[in-house]
């Protein structure tokens, strides 16, 4: 299937040409790091430490994750408080209520159906956590923690756990795993089916993690690549093309930021719904 020798050749050639290439610079900005990057002005180095042999450094992405979480918590507690004084939402409350009702009525209710209220807190938290992360990443000098595979993979594992929890809670542990295999499968096919279904089970969160990571990374890489065009070509004239293009991609990223939060939540909800109601 894979022409390993030719792949090896390409990789080797890429590695040898890698030094001094601009991709290094781009990846540096997109990836996690142990400092806050305010280049070209200054860098703020963050505390580094290890615990039980695990690197638990407070990195750029950890810091922005906390920032987003704190922001999210402040916003939502304010919204919650607004309802205590008046049932009629105004401006600020109205804006956030729009998203909450959207997650409830357009995502959770149609995909999970009966008993969707149980999963609402998880879906809402995931939605807003990703949303805040995506939008935080669009602010200059900040970092997008949702474009880190470690973060998206962790989120996907959470979804995976919630899916299994939902499935087992509604159908029983045995009933759930039995329900994974379609009815009427010949006995001799069972070993294969079990493997296939298990792979399918794992593929869902894997796809979730990769989708969010790739979408949030790609836009940033394209913007950096367009900007670096000016430096690669060593001419300010390229800014006339690169800046509008980068702006356009930035506009696209605003949409993608919203869309990816929606897609992650929607698919999580869909998978939960499929696990809860196992009607093939």
């Amino acid at each position: 299937m894979i022409d390993s020798t030719s792949t090896q050749v390409i990789v080797d050639s890429l590695i040898t040409t890698k030094p001094a290439s601009s991709s290094d610079w781009i990846l540096h900005h997109v990836m996690d790091g142990d400092y806050l990057d305010f280049s070209p002005f200054f860098k703020v180095y963050l505390p580094q430490f290890e615990l039980f042999g695990v690197d638990l450094s407070i990195t750029r992405h950890v810091l922005f994750m906390w920032l987003g979480s704190i922001l999210l918590f402040i916003v939502m507690t304010r919204v919650a408080k607004a309802y205590k004084s008046s049932m009629v939402p105004k401006g600020f409350t109205n804006f956030w209520e729009l998203f909450i009702i959207f997650v409830r009525d357009e995502i959770a209710k149609p995909t999970i159906g009966k008993g969707f209220e149980k999963f609402l807190p998880y879906l809402l938290t995931a939605f807003f956590f990703i949303l805040f992360g995506n939008f935080l990443g669009l602010i200059p000098f900040s970092a997008t923690f949702t474009s880190n595979i470690a973060v998206t993979a962790t989120m996907a594992i959470f979804t995976f756990l919630v899916i299994q929890y939902g499935g087992m809670r509604n159908n029983g542990a045995f009933g759930y795993f039995k329900g994974l295999i379609p009815h009427g499968v010949p006995v001799f096919l069972l070993p294969i089916m079990i493997v296939v279904e298990l792979l399918g089970l794992l593929a869902k969160p894997f796809a979730l993690a990769i989708r969010l990571f790739a979408n949030m990374t790609a836009g940033h890489i394209v913007i950096y690549a367009l900007i670096s065009l000016i430096f690669v070509m060593q001419s300010v004239g390229w800014a006339g093309l690169a800046i509008p293009m980068a702006l356009f991609i930035y506009g696209l990223e605003v949409l993608v930021a919203l869309l990816q939060a929606y897609i992650f939540t929607m698919l999580s909800s869909l998978f939960i719904g499929m696990a809860v109601h196992q009607d093939h």
Binding site: V62, F129, A150
Partner: peptide, 30 residues
Amino acid sequence: SVNGGLAFWTTLTFILLLILLTKFAWKPIL
């Protein structure tokens, strides 16, 4: 590459956020 430390912090942050938001935001809002 998956950074274990970041995954740990994400887990911690997310669980804390889930618990706090559920108690102080989602339940009253919903």
